[in-house]
Amino acid sequence: TTVHLNGVTYTFPNPEEARKFVEKLAKTLNLKVEVHNGTYHIE
């Protein structure tokens, strides 16, 4: 599972880890999250 954040790409072997990371980040920084083909894009 891949996460794109400010031009940096993070790869998680575990989709659940990626989801938790994204949710925590989005909540902390009040960001918008979009998912395209299983890839998270955070703005």
Rank of each mutant, 00 (worst) to 15 (best):
V8G: 04
H41W: 15
V22N: 00
P15Q: 10
R19Y: 08
V22Y: 03
A26D: 05
P15R: 08
G38F: 04
V22T: 02
N37Q: 05
K24P: 02
T28W: 14
R19N: 04
T39Q: 14
N30V: 07
E23S: 06
G7L: 05
P13G: 09
H36E: 05
K24N: 12
V35C: 15
I42Y: 03
N14R: 06
V22F: 03
T1D: 05
A18D: 00
K27G: 10
G7S: 07
L25S: 01
V35Q: 04
K20I: 10
T11Y: 11
T1I: 07
F21S: 00
R19E: 06
T39R: 07
H4I: 15
N37W: 03
N37Y: 04
T2R: 14
E17D: 11
H4F: 13
T1H: 07
V8Q: 10
F21D: 00
F21A: 02
Y10V: 05
R19I: 08
T2K: 14
K20N: 08
Y40K: 02
F12H: 00
T28C: 15
Y40S: 03
T2C: 15
V33E: 01
L29C: 15
L5H: 07
A18Y: 02
V35P: 01
F12K: 00
E34K: 09
K24L: 13
N30F: 07
T28F: 14
L5F: 15
T1S: 11
P13L: 10
F21Q: 01
L25P: 00
V22R: 01
E43T: 15
P13K: 12
E34T: 15
V8S: 08
E23C: 15
T2I: 13
E16F: 11
P15A: 12
F21Y: 05
T39L: 04
P13F: 09
E16A: 10
T39V: 15
R19T: 05
T9L: 13
L25R: 01
N37V: 02
E17W: 12
N14E: 05
L29K: 05
K32M: 05
T9W: 10
V3L: 05
L25V: 06
F21L: 03
T39C: 15
V33Y: 08
Y10N: 01
K20F: 08
V35R: 02
L5I: 12
H36Q: 07
V33G: 01
V33D: 01
E34N: 08
L31C: 14
E34P: 01
F12E: 00
K20M: 11
F12A: 00
K24A: 13
T28Q: 11
N37H: 05
K27P: 03
K32Q: 05
T1Q: 07
P15Y: 07
E34D: 05
R19A: 07
H41F: 15
P13H: 09
F12N: 00
G7F: 07
T9P: 11
E23A: 09
T28H: 13
V8F: 12
K20C: 15
L31E: 01
V33N: 01
H36M: 09
L25I: 09
H4Y: 14
Y10M: 09
E23Y: 12
K20V: 09
V33H: 01
H4Q: 09
F12I: 01
N14C: 15
N14M: 04
E34S: 13
T2Y: 13
V35K: 04
Y40N: 02
K32L: 06
A18E: 00
L31N: 01
L31W: 05
N6K: 08
V8H: 10
E16L: 10
F21V: 01
T9D: 04
V3N: 00
K24F: 15
V35L: 12
E17Y: 10
G7R: 07
Y10A: 01
E16C: 15
G38L: 03
F12Y: 03
K20H: 08
N30T: 05
R19V: 06
P15C: 14
E34W: 14
V8P: 00
L25Y: 04
N30K: 08
T11D: 06
V22P: 00
V35A: 03
H41E: 06
E17M: 14
T28P: 02
F21T: 01
H41D: 04
H4A: 07
T1R: 12
F12V: 00
F21G: 00
E23K: 07
V33W: 13
T9H: 07
H41L: 09
G38Y: 03
T2L: 14
N14T: 10
E34G: 04
Y40F: 08
Y40R: 01
N14G: 10
V35D: 03
K32G: 02
G7I: 04
F21E: 01
E43W: 15
E34A: 08
V22I: 12
V3Y: 02
